[in-house]
């Protein structure tokens, strides 16, 4: 028992517990904010600006996202950490490729879902939240959606953990379910912070529901339930294609992939022809 160790202090049990606590607090903050918004919404939005709800939505979701980032980031191994900037740029660059093909999808979560599949739910959640934070340097309107992006990364990681990426047809199903949950969580942000959606197409769908007399939150939630599951199902399928197109040597670098056997294991590792 030396009194003063001269080696680097290893992150002790207390540090690990603190980070776990931060993660849990972040998740609780996001969940509590969502429940509060859904419970209090009807009276608020009809009499003009929902100042209080906006502050709660912004504060609660952002606090949750930041806690998640601070809790998860220091626990990630360097090999995963260096992938996060790549994933964030992929979110933008692959969106650009899609734009050049003229297909009507956005695909702004491909990098996030790819990280989640390779490195697990915690890394996925941190990547999603970070993606919104860093992207907000170019487009500040994505910042409030950080909690929704974190949820997408977390659910994608869970899907990978329980083997939904082992069968190709299960990945879009997982994406569809993720899209439903992510859409429902993001809708209050669109309603209370921005008072609507930014795309003209999505705006038309919201308008249609409003014309039928829905409240703004209900209309935006229904619109999200139309758009998001489709988008996420395609994104999950694209990530499955990418993950299987990568050489196994690359995917097996990741402990998460090895440990939970995330990708279907065709063990016929042929020597390079």
């Amino acid at each position: 028992m030396s009194q003063q160790s001269r080696t680097l202090p290893a992150p002790g049990q207390a540090a690990v517990r603190n980070r776990r606590l931060l993660e849990i607090l972040g998740a609780v903050s996001i969940a509590a904010t969502f429940i509060f918004l859904v419970l209090t919404q009807p009276a608020d939005i009809t009499n003009g600006l929902a100042g209080g709800s906006t502050l709660v939505a912004l504060g609660g979701f952002l606090l949750g996202a930041i806690l998640l980032i601070i809790g998860v980031l220091p626990t990630l191994p360097t090999s995963t950490l260096v992938l996060i900037p790549v994933a964030l740029v992929l979110n933008i660059a692959l969106g650009q490729i899609m734009g050049s093909t003229g297909l009507p999808f956005y695909f702004d979560a491909i990098g996030t879902v790819l990280i989640a599949v390779l490195a697990g739910p915690a890394a996925g959640a941190a990547t999603g939240a970070l993606s919104s934070v860093v992207w907000s340097f170019i487009n500040p309107t994505v910042l409030p959606f950080a909690a929704g992006a974190a949820l997408i990364g977390f659910l994608a990681g869970l899907a990978a953990r329980y083997g939904l990426f082992r069968r190709f047809y299960l990945a879009p199903v997982a994406g569809f379910v993720t899209g439903i949950l992510a859409g429902v969580v993001s809708a209050p942000i669109a309603a209370f912070v921005f008072g609507g959606t930014s795309g003209v197409g999505t705006g038309a769908i919201v308008s249609a529901f409003r014309a039928m007399g829905d409240t703004l939150l209900a209309a935006i939630t229904k619109q999200a339930l139309i758009s998001d599951p489709m988008d996420k199902a395609i994104v999950f399928a694209v990530v499955a294609i990418l993950a299987y197109a990568l050489p196994r040597r690359t995917t097996l670098q990741f402990a998460f992939v090895r440990r939970f056997n995330v990708l279907a294991g065709k063990k016929r590792e042929a020597p390079d022809a």
Partner: peptide, 9 residues
């Protein structure tokens, strides 16, 4: 695009 969407909506 955001303003346009708000105005229509």
């Amino acid at each position: 695009p955001f303003w346009l969407s708000l105005l229509v909506m």
